[in-house]
């Protein structure tokens, strides 16, 4: 649940999401769930010329499985904390696997 936990802290931040079909969408992250489905508001599609059909879309729900990257605002990430969270997650996983 690390990623879920992490993305939750980014709600109401502006993120850029690159989908597996190369579409990149910038918008305000409204919510995320444990499948990493993402709800975006005030979306801007980068390279709008290529995807004119998206020009009128203002908000969207993105299925988690089609996301390739999420580009985050760097200032909103607490790296040290994230490292510790990762260590904890790894410890949890190791505990479960045994």
């Amino acid at each position: 649940m690390l990623f879920f936990s992490f993305f939750k802290t980014l709600t109401n931040q502006t993120v850029t999401i690159e989908l597996k079909n190369d579409i990149r969408i910038r918008g305000t992250l409204k919510s995320v769930d444990q499948y990493l489905n993402i709800k975006l508001d005030d979306v801007d599609v980068l390279d709008l010329d290529k995807y004119p059909h998206l020009s009128s879309v203002k908000n969207m729900f993105i299925r988690g499985s089609v996301v390739r990257y999420v580009m985050l605002p760097r200032s909103e990430v607490d790296v040290g904390l994230l490292e510790d969270a990762t260590r904890r997650e790894a410890a949890n996983q190791a505990g479960k696997a045994r």
Binding site: M1, L2, F4, S5, F6, K8, T9, L10, T11, N12, Q13, D78, L81, L82, D84, A85, R88, E89, N92
Partner: peptide, 18 residues
């Protein structure tokens, strides 16, 4: 805390985003 460590601590540090 075990399941949601980052979010919980982050919220405490920076204040919950909502």
């Amino acid at each position: 805390l075990a399941e949601d460590f980052y979010y919980q601590v982050y919220s405490q540090i920076r204040g919950a985003p909502r």
